[in-house]
Design a binder for these strands. Structure first.
Lengths: 206, 206
DNA sequence: AGCAAGTTTGCAGACCGTGCAGTTATACGC
DNA sequence: GCGTATAACTGCACGGTCTGCAAACTTGCT
């Protein structure tokens, strides 16, 4: 009956919807608990209780406790890959990266909560850094093509790590409150882009 | 008798020497085992057996299994701090960083082995990234002073992360063998420095 | 209804890491 | 030298993460 309605809302089967809901629940209760009493002080059993599932089930959804916190990493990664792949002809990878960061400024309340949780825990800050690596790899790949860089060329690594630093810096919302506005973020992005273009130009003149 | 020979070799007491030896032994056998059968496949019990100590003792020397691999991080950190603190008047923090990286090119065979071990394990690569953070913090501090940067200024983060990337890149010995010579490394450092100076200059002209 | 496939669960177990208390080795004053 | 204070080592028990496995359960489809 619904078999022929494959328009754009796939009307995911009950199974899929339930699964998604379970996943969302786990994320939500976990972040709430982490925010309330800290990441280390919250056990998998606590989360399982609050989400009304078995502890074992949590590991069916997330490979590790930390992965609950970074629940949307795969999605971000996919979006970044798409942004680099589908950028308009004639724009540089650097341009695409700037746009991507600017576009990723909005964050729902869950993501805000997540940032607090990460900021409150040493291990999670490490985890965040570590999980930035695949994103930088994506950037490096695109920049290598963009600059037609050879294997010994270090420019892609420099640029990618700098963009990563800018990304972190903008999302970290340290400093005074006025540095937390979209305008300020855009200004920072502009600065970073100018810096990197200047650096690339300096190398070009050697 | 030897009590009066306190020239420059402090002749650490037996206790201290033994402790140092135990630490060295643990590091050595651990790295050997990691290299032989992999980091994950080696348990603390294995290391304890091979080092002829109790498993419990290992945690008296290293806070975690990973810390065995990064046994010299504290020393590197101290050296970096000293290099930034004691740099000759008139040289920039960037100059000091370039010199520091150039000076840290030699590595004994244990450090080479360590790099192999890290390269072979996903988790250790993450750990390495995470442990770079305090070094970058040191750099950031020095660069902030150097540039007289305000709290909202992102230049220190950019520069530090780029230097960190260069540091990693040089130590990672990927690519062809000819890219693994000190000459090549120095050339890379020169490039990075030129890049960063160019970037800073570009921002200065705004 | 009933079968196939996917999901959830409990159980047992490996491993990391910590607190504690007892034992052993070193250092130091006499 | 000798005894005592001090530091290191050790064993033990425990809490926590994460995995493999097989049994129970739910969903999708005919």
């Amino acid at each position: 009956m619904f078999k022929h309605m494959d328009t754009d809302a796939p009307t995911l089967g009950l199974r899929e919807r339930k699964k998604q809901k379970t996943r969302d629940t786990i994320i939500k209760v976990a972040l709430d608990l982490f925010a309330e009493r800290g990441y280390e002080q919250t056990t998998i059993a606590d989360i399982a209780d609050a989400a009304d599932v078995s502890p074992r089930t949590i590991f069916a959804y997330f490979p590790s406790k930390e992965d609950i916190v970074f629940y949307d990493l795969a999605e971000v990664q996919a979006r970044l890959a798409a942004a680099l792949r589908n950028r308009p002809e004639g724009t540089t990878a650097l341009d695409a990266l700037g746009d991507f960061i600017a576009a990723s400024l909005e964050g729902d309340s869950q993501q805000v909560q997540r940032r607090c949780v990460i900021k409150a825990d040493e291990g999670l800050q490490r985890g965040k850094r570590a999980r930035l690596a695949p994103l930088e790899e994506l950037m490096i790949g695109a920049i290598v093509e963009d600059l037609d860089a050879g294997p010994g060329d270090i420019r892609p690594q420099i640029v990618a790590s700098a963009v990563g630093a800018a990304f972190s810096s903008i999302h970290d919302e340290n400093g005074p409150p006025e540095s937390n506005t979209p305008e300020h973020a855009k200004a920072v992005i502009e600065d970073v882009m100018a810096f990197l273009r200047g650096g690339l130009e300096a190398l070009r003149q050697r």
